[in-house]
Every structure is written in C-alpha cells, then in structure tokens.
Amino acid sequence: MTTFLQIITNGLMLGGLFAIVAIGLTLIFGIVKVVNFAHGEFLMVGMFLTWMITTRMGLHPFASVILVVPAMFVLGALTQRLLIQPLMGAEDDHVQIFATVGLSTALMNLALLTYGADIANTPTFGLRAPIELGPVRILTGQLYIFLAAIALVIALQLFLKNSQTGRAIRAVAQHRVAAELMGVNVPRIYILSFGLGAACVGLAAVLIAPLYPTSSNIGTYFVLTAFVVVVLGGLGSIPGAFFGAMVIGIVDSAAGYYIGSGLREAVVFGLFLVILILRPSGLFGKRMTLSHLS
C-alpha cells in the first residue's frame, strides 16, 4: 500500500513538472495558434539564467525569479514581434513552424557556444532534500513545482476570466476578426501572449534548475513530454494541460515500477497514441478547451 501511494505521489510530482513546462506552450498555441518548437530552448535559456544569477550573486535560486521571468517575457515578446509576426501574412502557415524550429536550433547552438558542452549545476539550497508527507517521501523542490503548477493554472484562469486584457486575449483566441472589430489591437495581444507563455516557462526554469543539471540540450529532454501533455489536454487548454500532465506523470511512474524503467517511455507514448486514436481532440475533449481559452 505504501509503495502504491509512493508511486502515485511520484506520478503527481512528475505531473507537476510536466505541467509547469507545458502551460506556456499551450497558452501560446491557444492564442497565437503557433506551435513554438523553441519552447524547450526557452526553458533551457531560463535555466542557464537561473544558474548564472544563483552562482554569480550567491542568491537562493528562487530569488532569481524576479529577473528570469521578466527576461523570458521579453524573449517571448521579441520572438513574436521579430520572428512570427512578419511571417503571419505568409501564404503558408508552415513557415512559422520552420521559423520556431530554426530558433530552437539557434538557441541551442548559442548556448553551446557560450557555455560549452559542460553541465551547469545550480546550487540546490536544500531543494533536493527529501521531506516526508505521511507515508510518502518526496523532494522539497518537487513539492514546490507541484504547488507552483497549481497556482499558475489558477492565476492564469483568473486573469483570463476576470481582467479586461484577459477577456481580450480570449476574444482574440476565439474570433480574431470580431475582436478586431471591438477595438482590440490583435498584434499587440499576440506579442503579450507570446511573452506570457515564455514567462510561464521562465518560472518553470527557475523551479527546475536546482533539481536538474542544466545543459544546452536540456530543452529536448522536457519538451517532447510537454507536447504530449498539450495534445492530451486538448490543444490550447490550460486546465487540460494540467490534468493531461497528471495522467502522463502517473502512467510514467507506475510503468517505471510495474513494467520496468526502460519501458516507461514506450508505455507513455503507446498510451498517447491509443488515446489519440480514440479521442483525437484530447482527453478533455473540445468542450473544456473552448470554455477556457480558445
């Protein structure tokens, strides 16, 4: 029984990690309708920033959030303004996909050039220490990630639901032309949304950096699961991505124990394919996606 609880808990913690990486991705997709293939590299940039700030200034890694999140917002906003927006008038939407793939490769190589192929270890400040919650043990840092993922989902939902700007974002996601007719500056909403999505992955980076070694290819490690989570949750749905992440986290954790750790990914992606065949619009279907964002 304790083992089972431990597996579920590990799954939830892993889910929190997947969720916090995926939220920004689904946000950008839901609003700007662009699949950002550079999302993983945004995470990598955020993690390097966290590492630099933490080691140079001797601060607690979480303190770097004040710098990393705004910096990532700017990176996202600039990506939309300088890279995506000029391509939005293009005849073929696929051009944008190639652009983000290009950005991904560029960022990865830029990191390789700047930091070399070495691993950068962010000081842990006790975040890798286990804590006991009843019968189960988890890492302190994991718990923070899980809680932060929940807080981020709630905060974004409140912002999108209740603020004038949040409503305008949803309006653009649902009907761009009609939003324009209400006086919404659509290009500006796109820039803001891309920035917000990047800021979310910036937050993820700050929380993840103390737990995982940072390297130029760390983004690829996380981003594939993030894509699975986003598709599973119904493209563009923030709560969908969260619950999708929990499902993947638990499946991953259970498969690792009961089937064998070498087959975890096979099980996760196999299940993903099965779900896609049975429910092409994701686990949480169209309704949830639409009522929340797009």
């Binding site: 004038q164 309006a171 649902q174 009907h175 009609a178 939003a179 007719l181 919404v184």
Partner: peptide, 26 residues
C-alpha cells in the same frame, strides 16, 4: 462600430462577456 455579417460572437464566452467586449474601446 461594425455589427458584422453572421454575428461573429465569441462563441465560448457568455453573453455578458460578449457585451463586455463591446466596451473594450477606451
């Protein structure tokens, strides 16, 4: 202000939110 052909409401917003979008301009 243009009331467009085919209504063009925001389908997954409530009627109240649609009306609130009307007041978006300063």
């Amino acid at each position: 202000i243009l009331v467009p052909e085919g209504r063009q409401l925001f389908p997954d917003m409530t009627v109240r939110e649609n009306l609130q979008m009307g007041t978006y301009r300063k």
